[in-house]
């Protein structure tokens, strides 16, 4: 009996030893030198692997950071400025400060505002629907509402609102990685500067049709009338192709444009109620 055990131990040890020797030489032969700083940088990153930086994952981003001589074009939107300062510290480089951003869905074509003109009955993804035709409503620029952005989000930060049929961003969770921006075939989602208290003012429309056509398709469409552009004192608003755009980097949240918009296409979020003299009632998107 004891002999059997002995043989077993000897055989197994011999196999183990041989394997160890082979592995040692193999490891020597195929050794790849890696900059140890890559691991350090990777450690400083959030590890979400979302691809928001434009690289395949955090590892690839870390490699790029180590390889480059400056961090001008490299930014991790998830970690933000703090994270980039850490990375810069490790590499002895200068980090670029960027304003934190948040995703905003630029369509307010709820079922009520934008009547349906037909019914889609294909595979329910936005990508397929928009490859087939313009959409279920008269507005060819508006949201399909099949939630490609929702499935693209790794952070559970965007959800469909079943009542409006539109996606809504949860600001606290959004890291501005841009996955939803790429997923939206209608190009409706924009990364905008994050203001304190979650405040934002934006044109919730992407309709480039002429005023009449746009209005017919959707009650809250931007008709490109240009009133907001005139009203804005900070040159933050531009009109192109019958569509207004508010540059969030220039916007000072004065709310003047909101009051002049005849179709309520400009939306203000998380502001205190206005003082008496404001008459037009706003649709406020609850977050």
């Amino acid at each position: 009996m004891s002999i059997t055990i002995l043989y077993t131990i000897i055989t197994l040890s011999a196999i183990g030893a041989t394997a160890a020797i082979i592995l040692y030489f193999v490891a020597q032969k195929f050794k790849v030198y890696e900059d140890p700083r890559i691991d350090d940088v990777e450690g400083a990153l959030p590890g979400a692997n979302c691809g928001g930086c434009g690289f395949a994952g955090c590892r690839a981003f870390a490699e790029a950071c180590v390889k480059e001589n400056n961090l001008d074009d490299l930014f991790c939107p998830v970690g933000g400025n703090d994270c980039m300062t850490d990375v810069a510290g490790i590499l002895g480089l200068e980090a670029v400060k960027k304003d934190p951003r948040v995703a905003v869905v630029r369509c307010n074509g709820t079922c009520e505002h934008r009547p349906k003109t037909n019914r889609f009955d294909g595979a329910s993804t936005c990508a397929i629907a928009s490859s087939v035709y313009s959409g279920e409503t008269g507005c060819q620029y508006g949201c399909h509402g099949y939630g490609d952005c929702v499935s693209a989000c790794d952070f559970d930060a965007i959800h469909m609102n079943p009542e409006t049929g539109l996606p809504e961003v949860v600001d606290e969770k959004c890291v501005a990685c841009g996955a939803c921006v790429d997923a939206c075939p209608k190009d409706l989602i924009e990364l905008r500067k994050k203001f304190p208290k979650g405040r934002k003012i934006y044109v919730s429309c992407r309709n480039k049709d002429k005023g009449g056509v746009a209005r017919k398709a959707c009650k809250v469409a931007c008709i490109g009338c240009g009133k907001c552009e005139k009203e804005c004192k900070f040159d933050a608003i531009t009109i192109a192709n019958n569509l207004a755009f508010i540059d969030s980097d220039k916007c000072k949240l004065c709310r003047k444009c909101v009051s002049v918009c005849p179709t309520h296409a400009i939306i203000e979020v998380n502001f205190p109620p206005r003082k008496i003299k404001e008459i037009p009632k706003k649709e406020t998107v609850e977050n």
Partner: peptide, 8 residues
């Protein structure tokens, strides 16, 4: 009633 649209 609205027309249905779907891919072939």
């Amino acid at each position: 009633n609205l027309l249905t649209v779907s891919p072939s």
